[in-house]
């Protein structure tokens, strides 16, 4: 198929895809892959801060836990947070964008002005405020992320819907007497899918980064969760001596975010209906 062929030619997209597949695999099968799965919670004060070795390839942390195992186990949490945040943002943002883009007059205006207000909220400050109010937890961090991320989807979907609504094929469908529901869900949404998918893919990486930041600031995951951001935060007091403590969770964040971004960029290029062929 032409789409697969085109995708296979895009080296960076293939690398991104491979990283994402690997991260998902690790997230799903983490407990079976990790050499010391019990290190999620258990501490071994006898082997604190060991440098990387054959037994502990990424070294151990201040509580003697295997960092490799905790990086592997952290993938599931990171992915879960980002999927939930991006999923919830899409669930709010996409329908609002469709409604604002397809309707005219006050409804459209109202939706877009509210969107602008949310777009103006500073993400980290909102997260900090929510953490103050609700107590620092993964939930409050996720609510803050969703509250600041859905407007991006609304704006993209709004712009795409506006463009498609003016296109000739929507005009032709109206001429045939198609209902707005049919036009919006069977025609506009699939045609607007590519920017949504691209944004979501990049958003997954972005959310992992912000969730890690919140973890680092102590506003997200709470100990003893194997969270990448939290690990970096805890490693601060042992730097620069225990360099491996911060490095490997940091690399995990870097590689995962990079993977999602490369994949997102690659998807943008292949989302072209012209690549659809009958044979």
């Amino acid at each position: 198929m032409l789409i697969l062929k085109k995708f296979a030619q895009d080296k960076s997209a293939v690398i991104g895809f491979a990283i994402v597949v690997a991260v998902v695999f690790i997230a799903v099968f983490g407990p079976w892959l990790a050499p010391y799965p019990q290190d999620a919670t258990m501490s071994h004060l006898t082997r604190r801060l060991r440098p990387p070795s054959w037994a502990f390839p990424f070294g151990t942390d201040n509580l003697g836990r295997d960092i490799l195992s905790r990086v592997i186990l952290g993938a599931r949490g990171a992915l879960k947070v980002s999927l939930l945040v991006v999923g919830a943002s899409m669930a709010i943002g996409v329908p609002l964008g469709l409604a604002a883009g397809y309707s005219r007059g006050w409804l459209s205006e109202a939706i877009m002005r509210v969107t602008d207000v949310f777009l103006a909220l500073p993400q980290l400050i909102l997260a900090l405020a929510l953490a103050q109010l609700m107590g620092p937890s993964l939930e409050s961090a996720m609510i803050a992320l969703v509250a600041t991320y859905w407007p991006f989807f609304t704006r993209i979907v709004y712009a795409e819907t506006r463009r498609l609504r003016a296109s000739l094929f929507v005009d032709a469908l109206e001429g045939l007497g198609a209902s707005p529901t049919r036009i919006v869900f069977l025609h506009i949404l699939p045609n607007a899918a590519s920017p949504i998918i691209v944004r979501a893919t990049i958003g997954l990486g972005f959310t992992i980064l912000v969730a890690a930041t919140l973890g680092f600031l102590g506003m997200g995951a709470t100990p003893p969760d194997p969270d990448w951001g939290l690990a970096i935060s805890q490693s601060r007091t042992f730097l620069p001596g225990a360099w491996w403590y911060a490095t490997f969770p940091g690399l995990a964040i870097l590689v995962t975010v990079l993977g999602f971004n490369l994949l997102g960029d690659g998807l943008r290029d292949i989302m072209d209906p012209r690549l659809r062929r009958s044979r």
């Binding site: 000739l168 094929f169 001429g175 045939l176 007497g177 025609h187």
Partner: peptide, 28 residues
């Protein structure tokens, strides 16, 4: 009924011709 000046643009690019033609019948 109306035939557009640019009938290519009047078809959803992601839909096959058969699918698009059938849609007119479904709608009516």
């Amino acid at each position: 009924q109306y035939v557009h000046q640019d009938p290519g643009a009047a078809l959803d690019p992601w839909w096959s011709i058969g699918h698009s033609l059938e849609e007119g019948l479904v709608i009516t």
